[in-house]
Design a protein around this nucleic acid. Structure first.
Lengths: 233, 233
DNA sequence: CATCTTAATTGTACCGGTCTAATTAATCAA
DNA sequence: TTGATTAATTAGACCGGTACAATTAAGATG
């Protein structure tokens, strides 16, 4: 494991375990350097990570402080802990409605940057959280990249399979979201009424070499979904 | 201006002007170092900025490539171009419904980390985009920080006033969002029907020293609002 | 011509340093 | 005690370097 990632983890655990409050001061850079026996730039990188995750904030001339943002029930949409963890955790309870190899829609082909003649794995499923239906999800996986899928893999963790099983490394995702009304079909799956609010999220996942491999359209139950974002100004 | 910020801007402009497509390769690190006459770490920092903004992605052993994610009508929820620009741009068309000094609600006091006896500036307004009502917004500004506000300032740019006029430096924001149904009152302001979907966004803006100074609750017209997020995995 | 091996390319981790800017603490003057 | 001045603290910008890992290109091999 990389040094700066390790340091970031250690610091985050420290904050967690000692239940440090918002504004609590962490050791200064010099001390952290000595404590972990690394150079300044390594500590700085670790802190940048934590800043991006919203765990700390730094004030020049003053110090490094704990930033508290936790709200129960909210899911972070940002770096590391964000989408990945969320997908992994919620994977646990999910019901596969469809799984087959087919030709992509024009929309999917466009987003995956493939031809409409190329094959894709199509997956449709419902995800549950706390026994409630959380969302309805449709995914298109480029078959030339994700060469094989089955029900077991989907029920476990697709992303784990892609990294561990296929040896691919996932890079980044572009996510578009807007609010709309549920169609009759969606309402049925989510056990809500037609015309009720929905949060619609479209994501394009890319390998770390920039190739898109997964185009997903997710319709969230508005009652169950709340998100958390960190903005920098 | 900082060197690495300047480099980031230059590169972004270059990509924009030359209309570089997704996957287009940029000059290698060595060349960028020479081109801008700076050290490797400075170029790297510039590229980190651009990566965070979703403008480029880097592949070790391969190069630096353009990342395209533009979608018409979507507003980025992330770094730099995100909330700040959005707030500034949409400031143009807004109608102030209320502006006064009052005591904060318990909720506002909690989020601003002040006592319910402290004064706040309360601002309620509607924002318009393309002639349509975009959102209904309620803001609480800690009066001990934002010492004075008037209608002109609000109609211009509050954030500009805070940085330029008051000499404060804005740091970061925590944003929580969920979807719900419009109340009768909200529906009236947004020219929609009660029970229609709404996107509800709560933000706490902080100075760069960590002090919260603005707690905002925004109800978006679901027809007019769509957002864009970048996730790292 | 395909396949394996090797070498060159290129971004990333990490070091250890200087100098600067913001903040905070200490000092001094009124 | 207050307020201004100065000094110490502290994070951040920036340099220039070494070593390393992933990718790509070139060469060798069958």
């Amino acid at each position: 494991m990389l040094k700066y990632q390790h340091i970031a983890d250690e610091l985050e655990n420290y904050i967690e375990e000692h239940k440090l409050q918002q504004g609590a001061k962490l050791p200064v850079l010099q001390d952290l350097m000595r404590q972990f026996n690394v150079s300044k730039s390594t500590v700085t990188k670790a802190l940048e990570l934590l800043e991006k995750k919203g765990v700390v904030f730094q004030v020049r001339g003053s110090g490094i402080f704990v930033r508290r943002h936790k709200r129960n029930g909210y899911i972070s949409l940002l770096s590391n802990q964000g989408f990945k963890k969320m997908l992994e955790e919620f994977q646990l309870a999910s019901k596969v409605i469809a799984l087959d190899v087919r030709k992509p829609t024009k929309e999917a082909a466009l987003n995956l940057n493939i031809s409409i003649d190329d094959d894709v794995y199509y997956v449709k499923r419902i995800r549950f959280i706390h026994g409630q239906t959380l969302c309805l999800e449709e995914s298109y996986f480029t078959k030339s990249i994700v060469t094989y899928l089955n029900k077991e893999i989907i029920t476990e963790s697709i992303f784990n399979y892609i990294t561990e099983g296929l040896g691919l490394s996932i890079g980044f995702a572009d996510t578009f979201l807007h609010v709309d009304k549920l169609t009759a079909e969606e309402a049925q799956y989510l056990e809500l009424k037609e015309g009720d609010p929905k949060l619609y999220v479209e994501s394009i996942f890319h390998l770390s070499n920039g190739q898109p491999f997964d185009f997903s359209k997710v319709t969230y139950n508005y009652v169950q979904s709340q998100f958390f974002i960190q903005a920098e100004l």
